[in-house]
């Protein structure tokens, strides 16, 4: 079973990298651009057939290592 995890910075946390990317895209003439936030993406494959068990394990991975809950949010999606 394979999962996609997207980690994004919370709304109130300053994202200097996203700002620089945004500035550069605007300088390139992307006039309708309003906002850019940069995040992280993980693909994790598990040897597990029960979906709820797998999801709980991914949830644990996020909370214990992949995500800093003070500054980041995350979403989990099953991709296969």
């Amino acid at each position: 079973m394979k999962f996609a995890i997207t980690v994004t910075l919370k709304k109130d946390v300053l994202d200097p990298q996203g700002k620089v990317v945004q500035q550069t895209l605007q300088n390139m003439g992307m006039d309708t651009l309003v906002n850019v936030r940069q995040g992280k993406y993980f693909e994790i494959e598990l040897n597990e057939t029960k979906e709820d068990v797998a999801k709980n394990l991914i949830e644990e991975m996020c909370k214990k290592l992949l995500v800093n809950l003070i500054i980041e949010n995350y979403t989990i999606n099953k991709i296969s």
Binding site: V13, L14, P16, Q17, V20, N68, I70, I71
Partner: peptide, 16 residues
């Protein structure tokens, strides 16, 4: 910070 012994986070420097 990452162990949680001190609360908070250390982000990238503002000027990158």
């Amino acid at each position: 910070i990452e162990t949680g012994l001190i609360k908070g986070a250390l982000l990238r420097n503002k000027n990158l």
